[in-house]
Amino acid sequence: MWRDVVFVGVGGAIGTALRAGLTLAVGDGLGSALVPLINIVGAFLIGILFGWRSRMPASSRAQRAQLFLGTGVLGGFTTYSALAVEAAGPGLLWWGIGSVVLGTGAAWGGLLLGRGGRTQR
């Protein structure tokens, strides 16, 4: 169990560092669109990962890869807490709602892609 916690923690640190680096590199150019973009891309990648994982045989190695990449790296990369804070601003509620809807659609599309286009396992 502790090994799994370490995988998630290390992955989360990597994902958070990736998001911070991206924010520093392009944050000024994209402004308030950056957080929803990060979340939508992250949701899409999580969908791909979970779709790909559904095609694999069950194993502790595959489960740890999912914990490291999905919960850790991509969980740290996405930042729905920052979205909630930004959406709380005046007139930005639509931005938060749109991001959640688009993120859900992106995750669904990624899941289909990860499954190889199959809707069921």
Results as ranks from 00 to 15, higher is better:
Met1Arg: 11
Trp2Ile: 12
Trp2Phe: 13
Arg3Trp: 01
Asp4Gly: 12
Asp4Asn: 12
Asp4Tyr: 07
Val5Thr: 10
Val5Gly: 13
Val5Phe: 13
Phe7Cys: 10
Val8Pro: 09
Val8Glu: 07
Val8Ser: 06
Gly9Cys: 14
Gly11Ser: 01
Ala13Asp: 00
Ala13Asn: 05
Ile14Ala: 10
Gly15Lys: 00
Ala17His: 08
Ala17Gln: 10
Leu18Met: 14
Leu18Pro: 08
Arg19Cys: 11
Gly21His: 09
Gly21Thr: 03
Gly21Cys: 09
Leu22Thr: 06
Leu22His: 10
Leu22Gln: 06
Thr23Asp: 12
Thr23Val: 05
Leu24Thr: 11
Leu24Tyr: 02
Leu24Lys: 11
Val26Leu: 09
Gly27His: 12
Asp28Leu: 11
Gly29Asp: 12
Gly29Thr: 08
Gly29Leu: 12
Leu30His: 04
Gly31Asp: 05
Gly31Tyr: 10
Gly31Lys: 03
Ala33Pro: 06
Leu34Val: 03
Leu34Gly: 06
Leu34Pro: 06
Ile40Phe: 00
Ile40Asn: 00
Val41Met: 08
Gly42Pro: 01
Phe44His: 01
Phe44Gln: 01
Phe44Ser: 03
Leu45Lys: 09
Leu45Glu: 02
Ile48Gly: 02
Ile48Cys: 09
Phe50Gln: 10
Gly51Leu: 03
Trp52Phe: 14
Trp52Pro: 01
Arg53Phe: 12
Ser54Gly: 05
Ser54Asp: 15
Ala58Lys: 06
Ser59Cys: 03
Ser60Asp: 13
Ser60Ile: 05
Arg61Thr: 14
Gln63Val: 06
Gln63Leu: 07
Gln63Phe: 01
Arg64Leu: 07
Gln66Asp: 05
Phe68Ser: 04
Phe68Lys: 07
Phe68Gln: 08
Gly70Arg: 04
Gly70His: 03
Leu74Cys: 07
Gly75Leu: 03
Gly76Tyr: 03
Phe77Ser: 05
Phe77Cys: 12
Phe77His: 10
Thr78Leu: 09
Thr79Cys: 08
Tyr80His: 04
Tyr80Gly: 02
Ser81Leu: 04
Ser81His: 04
Ser81Ala: 13
Ser81Tyr: 00
Ala82Trp: 02
Ala84Pro: 01
Val85Phe: 10
Glu86His: 01
Glu86Gln: 14
Ala87Ser: 14
Ala87Lys: 03
Ala88Asp: 11
Ala88Asn: 13
Gly89Gln: 15
Gly89Leu: 13
Pro90Ser: 10
Leu92Tyr: 07
Leu92His: 14
Leu93Gly: 14
Trp94Met: 05
Trp95Leu: 14
Gly96His: 01
Ile97Glu: 07
Gly98Ala: 13
Gly98Pro: 08
Ser99Asn: 15
Val101Leu: 15
Leu102Gln: 05
Gly103Gln: 06
Thr104Tyr: 09
Thr104Gln: 09
Gly105Phe: 15
Ala106His: 06
Ala106Asp: 08
Trp108His: 14
Gly109Glu: 04
Gly109Trp: 04
Gly110Tyr: 07
Gly110Ile: 07
Leu111Val: 01
Leu111Tyr: 07
Leu111Thr: 13
Leu111Pro: 00
Leu112Phe: 13
Gly114Thr: 03
Gly114Lys: 00
Arg115Asn: 03
Gly116Leu: 05
Arg118Ala: 15
Thr119Ala: 14
Thr119Ile: 09
Thr119Phe: 12
Arg121Gly: 13
